[in-house]
Design a protein around this nucleic acid. Structure first.
Lengths: 225, 225
DNA sequence: CTCATAAAGTCATCCGATGACTTTATGAGT
DNA sequence: ACTCATAAAGTCATCGGATGACTTTATGAG
């Protein structure tokens, strides 16, 4: 399918080698073929092999010993750090965020307590509306509201993932805001809380999607331009 | 921890460039000097510069555009890894996975090509049904199908998050397969592909939820007991 | 002033060569 | 036979040059 078109040979080499490692073709401590052999196997130059190996070393999979060879240090990606920023576009990150926002809103609607709704309303009031000043502060308060929805879902995994790339999202928003990206207004936010209050996951789902739609549409326009 | 042997020019180059980024010498979006200039500045060859840049790209700090230049993507410590701290519960992980599966299926339904559907059907046929043997192989093939759906969405961020999950998911599936947790059958999988083929995101959404519902229900019973 | 085209700039990749370090083979001395 | 210094081979580290692909900028005709 090649859904993701790798634009460069080094990335392909990285994935090929990582794949061989994860599939246990080489065990921990094993010595990889030398650079010339890898070059021939992967049909790329030795320089490209070196770039790939260097990345895998930085990610903890491999270890090189000058004069000796390249060895496998870890065959598991359990501890693999998720380093998103790669080439995930702003749109991709927003879509991933949307996935979490939607599911969390559904769960929160189901698991909510009266206190949950009260707290969300309080955070929303605190957030206020964007008056053109203190962009960073506003983004922070806005994220605080959304993170609260995630947290209210009671799902720790989602909270951690959300935390992971909310920083990167905030950064990119700050860099691009004030231009074409519309900030969902107070009513859209309030709709989410209201939907959660009804306890209907379908309504919560729909409210979040309505909320994010204008932003995604704006991102599409940015990408096209 | 072995003493940090600075016998390695590429590592020095990595730290030098990363240092300049973190110290905000170059801001987000800024273009770095070209490879030849960096080579001269750091007193290393262009090949070494490329290895360093490649690592920083893999860590999310930089972005290269062929024919254009190398640009700063993040001035924050983007390399900070997401580690599923204190092992979120199995249920939490499944819910997070569900969030990604649902959204990816929606996007794939929208963005699908005939080849996408063909490929998914092929993977599903290859997966087959679980006959009690080769548990690891079956899980691998099963995950391959689900990852293909994610990949077909074209969203790199989701692919990476899913990859991050897949190790632990495979682990937990292996631990529970053949016990109380029902593995969604072939029909449930086929329903997802069919829904994607219709191009209706709503149907794809629903198919995935139907697919996951029995598993989540079983998990609930496990937690209660 | 517009816009198609040429030119320049830059990354992607390959190739060959040299140096540095490690491992293995060798063989003289005991 | 054994030991061990030394040579040889193997491998990674680094360098420089060359070509291709892609993007950006400059150019000039209309």
């Amino acid at each position: 399918m090649r859904a993701i078109s790798r634009t460069n040979l080094a990335d392909e080499a990285i994935e090929a080698i990582r794949g061989d490692i994860l599939s246990k073709r080489w065990a921990v401590g094993d010595k990889l073929p030398n650079e010339a052999s890898l070059s021939a196997m992967l049909s790329v130059s030795r320089g490209t092999v070196r770039e790939a190996v260097r990345v895998l070393v930085s990610q903890g999979y491999l270890e090189t010993r000058q004069g000796s060879g390249t060895y496998v240090r870890s065959t598991t990606d359990a501890g693999r750090p998720l380093t998103m920023a790669r080439r995930a576009s702003l749109r991709d990150q927003f879509e991933a965020r949307l996935a979490l926002d939607v599911e969390a809103a559904r769960l929160t609607a189901i698991r909510k307590t009266p206190e949950t709704v009260t707290e969300l309303r309080r955070l929303l009031a605190e957030r206020g509306t964007y008056d053109g000043d203190d962009k960073a502060g506003f983004i922070e308060r806005d994220l605080a509201f959304h993170k609260a929805v995630i947290a209210a879902s009671g799902n720790r995994a989602m909270v951690e993932i959300y935390d992971f790339f909310s920083a990167s999202i905030a950064e990119t928003i700050a860099a691009t805001l004030g231009k074409d990206i519309p900030e969902p207004d107070m009513q859209a936010h309030a709709d989410i809380v209201d939907a959660i209050e009804t306890g209907d996951p379908g309504k919560a789902d729909a409210a979040v999607r309505r909320f994010m739609a204008p932003v995604l549409a704006a991102l599409d326009r940015m990408i096209l331009s």
